[in-house]
Amino acid sequence: MTAAERCADLIVAELVAAGVSVAASLPDAWLAHVIDRVDAHDRIRHVRVAREDDGVGVCAGASLGGERAALICQNAGILLAANALAGYAFHHQLPFLVLAAYRGSREDRYYYQMYKGLVTEPVLAGLQLVHHVVETAQDVALIGDAMREAFLLRRPVVVLLRRAALLGEEA
């Protein structure tokens, strides 16, 4: 088993422990093992969406029906889905988790990712959405805390996962 696969096991175990039963996803290379495990898990109904705001809607609908839900995507998806996130946070007040690969931060290696690292946290602050940054796989308990926090706040809470949290020592 690779370090990335071990990280994915820890993250998905935390999602299941947090009660997540519905997950929507769009791929990112850093998230590949997480998404594969979510798709294979018998306690999670996994929906592949074509845009992140669809994933926000799926999670909101699942939350409306009493389930715990998570959107798994790259942080670019947070930028794209800003209106949907704000609408379900403040207009509907429905809680769910957004688990996002934090591309474009200091450990990234691609020019085209870097703008996302610059603007993601300021956009989340502008949206008045609580977020947490998971630095390594040892800190994945934040995922369960964030889900509980989302439920108490009646709005989505965002967890940004750095490269080391998703790929382990391969980072």
Binding site: C59, A60, G61, G65, G66, H92
Partner: peptide, 19 residues
Amino acid sequence: ASDPMGTAPALALGLALAL
């Protein structure tokens, strides 16, 4: 479903999965 416009079908999908 109200706003956000364009997300009602996804909301309905999530609700159908939950129920």
